[in-house]
Structure formats: C-alpha cells, structure tokens
Deep mutational scan, measured.
Amino acid sequence: MQRVNMIMAESPGLITICLLGYLLSAECTVFLDHENANKILNRPKRYNSGKLEEFVQGNLERECMEEKCSFEEAREVFENTERTTEFWKQYVDGDQCESNPCLNGGSCKDDINSYECWCPFGFEGKNCELDVTCNIKNGRCEQFCKNSADNKVVCSCTEGYRLAENQKSCEPAVPFPCGRVSVSQTSKLTRAETVFPDVDYVNSTEAETILDNITQSTQSFNDFTRVVGGEDAKPGQFPWQVVLNGKVDAFCGGSIVNEKWIVTAAHCVETGVKITVVAGEHNIEETEHTEQKRNVIRIIPHHNYNAAINKYNHDIALLELDEPLVLNSYVTPICIADKEYTNIFLKFGSGYVSGWGRVFHKGRSALVLQYLRVPLVDRATCLRSTKFTIYNNMFCAGFHEGGRDSCQGDSGGPHVTEVEGTSFLTGIISWGEECAMKGKYGIYTKVSRYVNWIKEKTKLT
C-alpha cells in the first residue's frame, strides 16, 4: 500500500490518463441519441435557420407576430419608411378606419389613436360632414345658397324668414311668412316636400332668348283662358290664391305678392273693366268669414305684352289694390325667389296649380277651390304637342294621358313649387288646347323671366 501511494504521488498524470480511459469505455446513459432527441424537440425550422439574422431580410411573422416588435424591426421587413409607417399605425392600436367614419364618399386613412378623412370636392370637416359648395344638395341650405369668396357655403332665406341657429334652416321672422300653410287642420295635408338634388348652379339658368321682337298675326285659340281631375282644397291650404270678379264672377285667378299687390295673367284683364279681388276665398257660393274683398285701382301688364300681336306672350300683369290686405292664416303671400332659384325650383319637376275653373272641358265651374299636382314636361315634348308657338318664356306641365289639367277660369292662378315646406311661385296658368285632352298640356308663363320686374313694381313704400 505504501508503494502504491508513492507511485500516485510521483505520477499524477498517469492516474488522470487511467481515469479518462475508464470513462470513455463506459456506456453513456444520461444523453439520448440524435434521433430520439429530435422526437422530443420537434420544432419547425425557421426561415433563416442556421444563418445569422443580421444578414437576412426581415420576416413579418418572425419579427412582429411571434413577439412584439419595434418600429426598427418592422422597418427591416418593409425596407421602406412609408410602408412601415402605414403598417405601424394599425399594428400599434388597430384600424381606426374600420367603422368607416368618413361621410359623403370620403376616404379614410388610419393613424395612431386617430384617423384622417380625405374629402371629395365640396366637403370638409373631420368626417367630411361639412358642405362647402352650393353645387351639392344646395349646400344643405333649406332655401338659398351662395358661395363666399373663400368658396364656403353661405345660406340665406327669402323675405319674412331668418336663418336658424344651425345656419342652414329657415324659420319665420314674421307672423305670416310667405308660402307657408298655417291653418292647423290643413298642415297635415301639406304636399310632399321637395329635397334639393345635386345641381350645376353655374349652368342652372337656361341660355334662352326671349323672342321679344317676333311679330306674329293673332292666333285663334280655343278655350285658351284655361282644375280638371283635381281635388277639393281645404280652407287655408292655398292662402296665396285669390279669385278675380268682373263682368262675371271667378273669371280668373291670381296670387298675393304682398298686402297691396296681386300677380295674374295679362290676358285676364281689360282696361276700363272694374275688377274686384277676393282673398281668403274657399267656396265661392258661401260666406265663410275668411274672405277679404278689395278693388283694383291700377293694372300693370308687362311692358312687352301686346294682345294685338299675341294674347299669351309675356302673359303676366300686376294688380294694385285700393287697401292693403290683412295677412292671416287664410290670406298669405306666395314666396318669389330670384331668377336663378325660381328656375331651379321649376326644374324640380312638379308643381301645384289651383283655381275655381271648370271641372271638365266646357263644363261647370268649381264651387270649392280645386288643386292638382302636375309634372313638368320637357321642352321637346311640349313643342311636338301643339302647332302653336311655345315661346321661351312659357313652359308645359300636365299629363300625356289627359284627364287632369287646369281649365277655363283658372287662368292667372299660381303654379307653385314647394321647397322644404315653403311654396314659391314658378308659373302662372296661361293657356292650353281644350282641357285635359290626351297628348295636350297646360301652358304656363315662366315666372323666372319676370321676377325682377315683379319685385321692382310691387315694392311697398
């Protein structure tokens, strides 16, 4: 034993070699072989497995989906700052455009905790909710729209109204504003409101030439003092309507412009014939205590009207009353817009006519005020429907199939267009061939041609 100890002390290297040989010859039971080890760690190889990531292109799944990435790591994937920024906006807080917040056709661009709407022409605001041009839906104005110097929408209202708090709607500024039905039992019968379409306001006024200088022999019209197929109006439903009495009662109609003036057809009036105007009328054979009678003290036909040349060209006249009318729910003026808007309103496509005229061709006159909704007829169809001249200051309205029309005794009465609950004068009943005849239409004086003249002559002093 002493000898062994001496050998170990003198030859430590020998001992180490012996131990190493023993270990190498022993069977290893701690580690699995290569094949079995792979069965336990069965993990798919990654895209760049075996390579240094710093030297390969980034992978979106590896960089940002398996674990949260930084902007720089995302930049490695896209290799483009702009594309990385677009991805980053949604990656950080989701897609803010998912709810489609942009209105009126706006395009949404996502941002971090926010979004941006790219608005089409005519709109602005956070969600493109603000109209900035009158060309689109009248700028959301209830009545009139004008573009300011910086191309912003400025709404306005006709006389007797003021802008509401929203700067879009119009509200009454006087007790009985024009064009409004205020009798409670008839307010439910107000005709369907007309909503502004998209309009090209630059070209809204037709490029028409008034044929002022045409000389033409007097034409022989049949029954051209021209509501057939209409309905009984309720008291106060058309408070701007008046009836004219002269040699015979209810020979023509008219509309209240203001307390002192009536507008009617020029062919209705004769110099030297006494005319009485009755406002607030409903049943011409009954006294309903809503009527107001006034005498006409002055007749002003349009300066281009000449019955000797043509009885229905420039067929418009103004009547001055001896005493002002007292405005109330049964006696209310009709609204008159400017030339541009009167023309736009007419193009809405349908209007209402009213009167006490004959209820059928050569038949009896109506006792109760009649009204009828009539569609506008395109000019080409209008011209083809008659052998008589249709001037540019006239328009056609009615039904091709016949059966409904204005008729004798309705002449001078109103053709009105309702705009968001307020009625505007767009025409004056003038003439036609018979009444409600198939293929024939009622012919009306186009008020847009005469609004400046009306307003100039009827100013209240």
Rank of each mutant, 00 (worst) to 15 (best):
Q2L: 15
Q2K: 09
V4N: 12
N5Y: 09
I7Q: 14
E10T: 12
P12A: 15
I15D: 02
I15N: 02
I17M: 13
L19K: 01
G21A: 13
A26H: 02
C28H: 02
T29S: 11
T29A: 06
T29M: 14
T29L: 15
V30Q: 15
F31N: 15
L32S: 13
D33L: 09
D33H: 09
N36M: 10
N38W: 08
N38S: 15
K39N: 08
L41W: 13
Y47S: 14
N48M: 12
G50H: 10
E54H: 09
E54Y: 06
F55Q: 15
V56G: 15
G58D: 13
R62S: 13
R62D: 04
K68V: 13
R75E: 08
R75C: 04
R75N: 14
R75W: 04
E79P: 15
E82R: 13
E82P: 11
E82K: 15
R83L: 11
T84E: 06
T84I: 04
T84F: 05
E86Q: 15
F87M: 13
K89P: 15
K89A: 10
Y91F: 06
V92C: 07
V92M: 13
Q96N: 13
Q96H: 15
Q96E: 15
C97L: 02
C97I: 02
E98S: 15
S99C: 15
S99L: 13
N100P: 04
P101M: 04
C102G: 00
C102Y: 00
G105W: 04
G105H: 13
S107P: 03
C108F: 01
D111Q: 12
I112N: 14
S114V: 07
E116I: 05
C117P: 02
W118I: 08
W118F: 08
C119Q: 02
P120V: 11
G122Y: 04
G122C: 02
E124I: 09
G125R: 02
G125I: 00
K126A: 13
L130G: 14
L130M: 14
D131E: 11
K137H: 10
N138W: 10
E142S: 13
Q143G: 00
F144S: 00
C145N: 00
K146S: 06
K146R: 12
N147R: 13
D150I: 10
K152N: 14
V154Q: 10
C155L: 00
C155G: 00
S156R: 10
C157K: 00
G160P: 00
R162D: 07
L163E: 02
E165T: 10
E165A: 06
Q167T: 09
K168G: 05
K168D: 03
C170M: 00
C170V: 00
E171D: 10
P172K: 06
V174L: 07
P175L: 09
C178R: 00
G179A: 00
G179H: 01
V181C: 06
V181W: 07
S182D: 05
V183Q: 09
S184V: 12
S184N: 15
L189Y: 12
L189V: 10
T190W: 11
R191S: 13
R191D: 09
A192V: 10
T194K: 08
P197N: 06
D200M: 06
Y201C: 07
N203Y: 08
S204Q: 04
S204N: 06
A207R: 05
I210L: 13
D212C: 07
N213H: 07
I214Q: 12
I214G: 06
T215D: 06
T215R: 06
S217W: 08
S217V: 13
S217L: 06
Q219I: 10
Q219D: 06
F221A: 12
F221L: 13
N222Q: 09
D223N: 12
F224Q: 05
T225P: 11
T225H: 12
V227E: 12
V228W: 12
G229P: 08
G230A: 13
D232T: 11
D232F: 09
A233Y: 06
A233C: 04
A233P: 09
P235H: 07
Q237S: 06
P239D: 01
Q241V: 09
V243E: 03
V243G: 03
V248E: 04
V248K: 08
F251H: 13
F251S: 08
G253N: 01
G254M: 01
V257T: 00
E259Q: 05
E259K: 07
K260S: 01
W261K: 02
T264G: 02
C268L: 01
V269M: 08
E270G: 07
E270K: 05
T271R: 03
V273T: 04
K274F: 03
I275K: 00
I275L: 14
I275E: 02
T276H: 06
T276E: 14
E281V: 11
N283L: 11
I284M: 08
I284K: 07
E285S: 13
E286F: 09
T287H: 06
E288S: 11
E288T: 06
H289W: 11
T290M: 07
R294W: 01
I299S: 11
I300L: 08
P301V: 12
H302F: 08
A308W: 05
A308F: 10
K311Y: 05
Y312W: 12
N313E: 09
N313D: 08
I316M: 04
A317E: 01
L318M: 03
L321H: 01
D322Q: 03
L325G: 00
L325M: 04
V326E: 13
L327N: 02
L327V: 08
N328E: 02
N328K: 00
S329F: 05
V331A: 07
T332R: 13
I334N: 00
I334V: 13
I336D: 00
I336W: 00
E340A: 14
Y341W: 13
Y341A: 11
T342Q: 03
T342A: 06
I344N: 07
F345D: 01
L346H: 05
K347F: 05
G349M: 05
G349H: 09
G349K: 10
G351D: 01
Y352R: 05
V353M: 05
S354W: 03
G355P: 05
G357N: 05
V359G: 14
K362W: 04
R364K: 12
S365T: 15
V368T: 15
L369H: 09
L369K: 12
Q370R: 12
Y371D: 03
Y371Q: 08
Y371G: 12
L372A: 13
L372T: 14
R373S: 11
V374D: 00
P375N: 14
L376V: 09
D378H: 07
A380L: 08
A380Y: 12
A380G: 13
L383D: 07
R384F: 05
R384W: 04
T386C: 09
K387Q: 14
F388R: 10
N393G: 13
M394P: 02
F395Q: 01
F399S: 13
F399A: 05
F399P: 12
H400G: 09
H400N: 09
E401K: 14
G402D: 09
D405M: 13
S406N: 15
S406A: 08
S406P: 10
C407H: 05
C407T: 05
C407W: 12
S411M: 14
S411A: 09
H415I: 03
H415Y: 08
V416G: 05
V416W: 09
V419E: 02
V419Q: 05
F424Y: 12
L425Q: 03
T426W: 01
T426L: 01
T426K: 00
T426C: 00
I428H: 03
I429Y: 11
I429A: 14
S430A: 11
W431M: 12
G432L: 03
G432D: 10
G432V: 07
E434M: 14
G439S: 12
G442S: 08
T445V: 08
K446T: 04
S448T: 06
R449T: 09
V451L: 04
N452M: 07
K457I: 14
K457Y: 13
T458C: 06
L460W: 11
